[in-house]
Design a binder for these strands. Structure first.
Ligand SMILES: [Mn+2]
Ligand SMILES: [Mn+2]
Ligand SMILES: [Mn+2]
Ligand SMILES: [Mn+2]
Lengths: 218, 218
DNA sequence: TATAAAAGTTAGGTTAATCTAACAAATTTA
DNA sequence: TAAATTTGTTAGATTAACCTAACTTTTATA
């Protein structure tokens, strides 16, 4: 049985790997995402390697073994199912779910997750638009295009957020944005990369940082 | 914030205290109920005393402070609400709920528990007949009379079980017993204290140990 | 390509929660 | 009440997960 901490390392690794396209990650990067020091990650890496959950050589890049991937995906699945549950059933807002799901994702019970999945009618996306891995560990979609990449003058659809922090999510709401909104990119400022966008007939100005955290479909 | 372990110590202590009538407990007793060694309990007791959660002097008995009681009751409340949820909503059987609730009771989120309580329509008893403390930490009933204490020839009602282990609970089902059943005590063997009982017109023989784990109302 | 910067590792330490073995105090019982 | 038993404590170790400070390797850049 994996510890709470080991599960967090594997999940963090999976998320980096999914983001990185290169299918690998580094020590510092992982340390950053877990808010611990690189030395700590180094220790854990040795342990995870010993358990055959990661592939890793001194000074080399880190990848997940098949076994490691399986565990990581299961944690991600639980996290996103719980977020969906909290949002759909318990009236949590999308900026409140993550914190609690961070705890719930570590509950060990196959039956619990099966029932949760069934109760929610096998949802495919969580409240942030992220795909929920199915029982067999398959994840469908990976969004890559962000609002910042959209050509000026065209319209796109917001399908997910990259940053899941409550401060960002609350900001998104404040700007009048939400999942499935149609967004038209009016213009981009050369000097500071500010974007003017139009949502539901209302214009707003958003920063590059903001736009890079909104995933869209053409 | 209390650790997972501290919460378990406080809950175990509360349960002992509620059982003991004397409102206090001892080191070995607590060690037994937590499946750790007395030396370990001793260490933890010093820490909990330092945090003003227990009253305790060297070689003396242990009681909960008001603050300790508050925390312990909250954990018990969460445990029993989760058991009820698993039983009522997720189709768990009464011998499956405890193990998972043992994990869920440590999730920290006031909103989560409020919503859980509301969703279940403010239940008063868990699937084992144990009373669920309300939001203000008040517990209503304490069952004391067991099936073994019932006078021969009289009829009583099963209201709760003392032992929550799945092996016992499965045994209870096998004997044909369940909460709210009317039980008539037919006879008690002098030599080995075996009881003959009648439930729904069917006679069964149960041991003293068994009978002492069934709480009844006259 | 030499050096500076970034990335990664090692050594040595801390804290929480556990243990065993030896001991001390309190309680029971003969 | 003295001895035996039970109960509780202490000292010293271990393990997981973290840290800082110093070091090494790799990568980027002048
Ligand atoms: Mn999340
Ligand atoms: Mn987590
Ligand atoms: Mn229980
Ligand atoms: Mn517990």
């Amino acid at each position: 049985m994996l510890s709470y901490t080991e599960e967090n390392y594997l999940k963090a690794l999976l998320k980096l790997i999914l983001d990185n396209t290169s299918n690998e990650a580094g020590t510092n990067e992982l340390a950053n995402s877990l808010l611990v020091k690189p030395a700590t990650v180094n220790d854990m890496l040795k342990k995870l390697k010993e358990k055959d959950l990661v592939n890793y050589e001194k000074y080399g890049k880190i990848t997940l073994t098949l076994e490691g991937q399986k565990h990581a995906t299961e944690v991600l699945r639980k996290h996103r199912l719980w977020e969906t549950f909290l949002y759909e059933v318990f009236e949590f807002s999308w900026d409140e779910v993550h914190e609690v799901a961070e705890q719930l994702e570590h509950i060990h019970s196959v039956k619990l997750i099966d029932q949760l999945d069934k109760f929610l009618n096998y949802p495919e996306f969580d409240p942030h638009g992220d795909p929920i891995p199915n029982k067999h560990g398959e994840i469908k979609v990976h969004f890559k295009k962000t609002l910042f990449d959209v050509e000026i003058g065209t319209t796109c659809k917001m399908v997910a957020v990259k940053d899941n922090s409550s401060s960002f999510l609350q900001y998104v709401v404040k700007v009048g944005l939400g999942l499935n909104n149609e967004i038209k990119v009016i213009s981009k400022q050369d000097y500071d990369a500010l974007l003017v966008i139009e949502v539901n007939g209302v214009e707003s100005i958003v920063s590059q940082k903001f736009a890079e955290n909104i995933f869209v479909l053409a």
